[in-house]
Design a protein around this nucleic acid. Sequence first.
RNA 1: GAGGUUGUAGCUCAGUUGGUUAGAGCGUCGGAUUGUGGUUCCGAAGGUCGCGGGUUCGAGACCCGUCUUCCUCCCCA
Length: 458
Amino acid sequence: MAQKPAIPKGTRDFLPTEVAKRNFMFATIKEVFRRYGYAPIETPSFELSSTLLGKYGEEGDRLIFRILNSGEKMRKADLDALAQDNLPRFANSLAEKALRYDLTVPFARFVVQHQNDLTFPFKRYQIQPVWRADRPQHGRYQEFTQCDVDVVGSDALMYEVELVQIFDEVLSKLGLPGFSIQINNRKILSGIAEVCGETARIVDLTVALDKLDKIGDEGVVTELEQKGFTAESIEKIKPLFHFEGTNEAKLNLMRAYLAESEIGLKGLDELSEVFAQINELGLQRGELIFDLTLARGLNYYTGAIFEVKAQGVKMGSICGGGRYDDLTALFGLKGLSGVGISFGADRIYDVMTELSLFPKELDRTLDILFVNFGSEEAKYCMKLLREVRNLGIAAELYPNAAKMQKQFKYANDRNVAYCVVIGAEEAAAGMLSFKNMETGAQEQLSSADFLTKCGQLF
RNA sequence: GAGGUUGUAGCUCAGUUGGUUAGAGCGUCGGAUUGUGGUUCCGAAGGUCGCGGGUUCGAGACCCGUCUUCCUCCCCA
């Protein structure tokens, strides 16, 4: 026997029933995106390394899949860098291309490159796989699909509101019973850093604060101490641990806390505006929550920050996003503000599977099976088959005159709804037997009646 | 990137202190059943024990390496 085949870690094959479910999910998502005025684009699966590197922080760079140069280009390898143990530089000399790590950075590149062809505000959606050289875990893959919606060229808060509505509409339509849409604002985080006198270390501060619900007050304090924060700074951070209550209550507490920080107050104003509008409009199943500890590692966010978690399942965030004012500036186009969100298709799929939210009929890839009795009967079936298929029904004829038991078993395994039996008896009478595979009920029909019935049933 | 964990038939798993020919259930295929499926009964096929090396008279079991699984960090969808 040959060596057993395998696929790389963190990747998966999808069986027909799984693809059907995924397509159902994508169709639902696309339909919502379209109604909000977003149009689809696509970008290459790999970009120049220089496009991606340095955009996701040090951690992110480590997780980017590099594509090894091929052929003579291998000679460009920077052996001096290797000798000096400068592995990043050595890697860069070996790999000029890399698989995309998300859809946001390639989109920023896309906008800059096609700026003269686009009408702003430019609203696009993009559903494509991304790759991360991460350690696989529950709900974490090395290849997974993101569904992004972004709008660039406007800093109107209306879009934050719109994206919250999209979160709510998509996830409600997919049937998630409950989910929290957590929102924060980078300006509020900047304000906190300012109030604490730790503006320079805002990243360390927010990363620690982000873990509050996981490691608790003491854990955060310990982490801050390890990072070298002074006791004085930590004392100023501590009150934040106990800001609880309704969104409004938290906003009010923050307003007092950030009274001295202009940027912090600006962030609060923005957030308040989004809350006010959402309260006016209402949400279906989502709950919008002000989470002042929400930070997210991506350092390009400048305004709103979003994260969505499904209730009732053990799973990390299923969606994320935020506003970025300077992303296109990295590619040479300044003054273009963007805001966008991303649906983690694979995690949402896992959540929906766990909660059994996919419609049953998605398991059906064949509606009608014609039982095969031999070449004469088969010819007759082929004609009927053409009519049935023209009605948009998925139908097929069993390939040979195998035992009926076997043919019905095949129908069962494929979860077929109906079988058509045309043997010598039926053919002689100009009739056919139409069998409901769920109830087992069977009726005799003329071919004309059969087609009429098909039109009604499907 | 750090630490732990897992791998035996298509799937879920047994396999004793190292000892003859590695087992079960489910699934698959064939038959009972030449025009009716899901049930039942009978039978069969299917394994380089993840891969490579080592210890041993002898390794599925012990040791090392490697890949993979799942988990905790890190980070994230």
